[in-house]
């Protein structure tokens, strides 16, 4: 074989080989949590602000993907697709329930050609988030009940013992204290023991923005300290009760 002929044959062989070797197409997968916790009230609850508070957020993989065949394992846990954006590649599922328990939510992911790509399953744990204070006998800060009239937000001590008292039949599971992070305005939580000293947050809500044509600045007077009490009620349900203590930090002297 002459060299020219050989290289031609080699090229043809290489090309044929390349065409039959299967190209590995990556399996695109939507991303979402495997389980979520949803808090509700005895008569049900819906987060305000349309889809912004939706408990299940799904990051879709390709433009044009969407979710369908949304189902809940029980009529005690209602679900609905509250948001979808094929351009943002995002979908959100709202959950409505008034019955604490563990449920399963399932849905399918489709591509822009309506072809099913995969199925997803999410565990939803529903518990009570209640203002009902019958399980809470009292919450004391620095020796005073936080419910004793309207406490003076100026003279309230910067730190003090936090004591939670539950009514009979309810068992305390944990206490967390939330303080605002200045940079993000998000509350960061830390566990504390019942009867231990806590320090109130000094960080008020603060936000500012400015552009060439518009500027705004907001700063609240008070710094809130969130108190999250988790307990097990008489029906053996896990409940969370949240309250807060405000301390005035901003005022004209």
């Amino acid at each position: 074989m002459k060299i020219k002929e050989f290289s031609k044959k080699l090229a043809a062989f290489a090309l044929a080989f390349a065409m039959i070797v299967p190209t590995a197409i990556p399996v695109s997968a939507a991303t979402c949590p495997s389980s979520v916790e949803v808090k509700t009230y005895k008569n049900g609850y819906y987060y305000t602000g349309t889809h912004n508070g939706a408990p299940i957020e799904i990051a879709l993989d390709e433009k044009g993907d969407y979710i369908g065949n949304l189902k809940s394992s029980s009529v005690n846990c209602r679900v609905y697709r509250v948001y979808t954006s094929t351009s943002n590649k995002k979908a959100k599922i709202g959950v409505w329930s008034k019955t604490p328990g563990t449920y399963t939510v399932t849905f399918d992911v489709f591509n822009s050609n309506k072809v099913k790509k995969e199925s997803k399953s999410i565990v939803v744990k529903v518990s009570y988030y209640t203002y009902s204070t019958s399980p809470i006998k009292d919450v004391l800060y620095s020796g005073k009940s936080i419910y004793s009239g309207y406490y003076d937000a100026i003279s309230i001590p910067k730190s003090g013992k936090l004591e939670v008292k539950l009514t009979k039949g309810n068992k305390l599971k944990g206490i967390r204290i939330g303080t605002r992070e200045a940079k993000t305005n998000i509350y960061k939580y830390k566990s504390t023991k019942n009867g231990k000293k806590i320090t109130l947050s000094k960080v008020p809500y603060k936000y500012s923005y400015s552009s060439s044509t518009y500027s705004y600045r907001r700063e609240n007077m008070e710094a809130d300290t969130m108190i999250e009490i988790t307990y097990i009620n008489k029906k053996k349900e896990v409940c969370t009760y949240t309250t807060s203590i405000s301390k005035l930090v901003n005022y004209a002297k």
Binding site: Y46, T50, H51, G64, Y66, R78, Y80, R81, V82, Y83, T84, S85, T86, S87, N88, G94, W96, S112, N113
Partner: peptide, 13 residues
């Protein structure tokens, strides 16, 4: 379908 787009928001309540 490459040109399709959908943005939808709907509340449960």
């Amino acid at each position: 379908s490459e040109y399709n787009s959908l943005t939808e928001e709907e509340d449960m309540v």
